[in-house]
């Protein structure tokens, strides 16, 4: 079977992901204690990367999108992710019709 280029990228991503899953045990467990700055940096990676992906949507993609992002931030403080997702999905759809 011939795999597509996309499938190869997926498999490479899978290998990289597995390495993060075994790597902590294999490498960091050799240290008595993880240096606090290293731990702080690692701990911050997902929030930092995901924020970097989202931020331009709030600025460069239009008014409907900017308003929806602002609403999503407020709603996410109170509601579960799925409820926020449903409401903001409807909101951005409506705003795109209106604006």
């Amino acid at each position: 079977m011939v795999l597509s280029a996309t499938a190869w990228v997926i498999l490479a991503g899978a290998v990289a992901t597995y390495l993060t899953r075994v790597g902590g045990h294999a490498v960091l467990s050799r240290f008595e204690r993880i240096p606090p700055r290293v731990e702080a940096a690692l701990n911050a990676v997902p929030a930092a990367v995901l924020t970097a992906i989202v931020a331009p949507y709030a600025v460069f993609f239009g008014l409907a999108e900017a308003i929806t992002i602002a609403a999503a931030i407020v709603l996410a403080l109170r509601l579960p992710t799925l409820a926020m997702l449903g409401i903001c999905w409807a909101l951005v759809w409506l705003l795109r019709q209106a604006i």
Binding site: A16, T20, R21, G23, G24, P46
Partner: peptide, 9 residues
């Protein structure tokens, strides 16, 4: 996925 490194440890 780098956070897994911490979980794993």
């Amino acid at each position: 996925n780098f956070r897994h490194v911490l979980y794993s440890a």
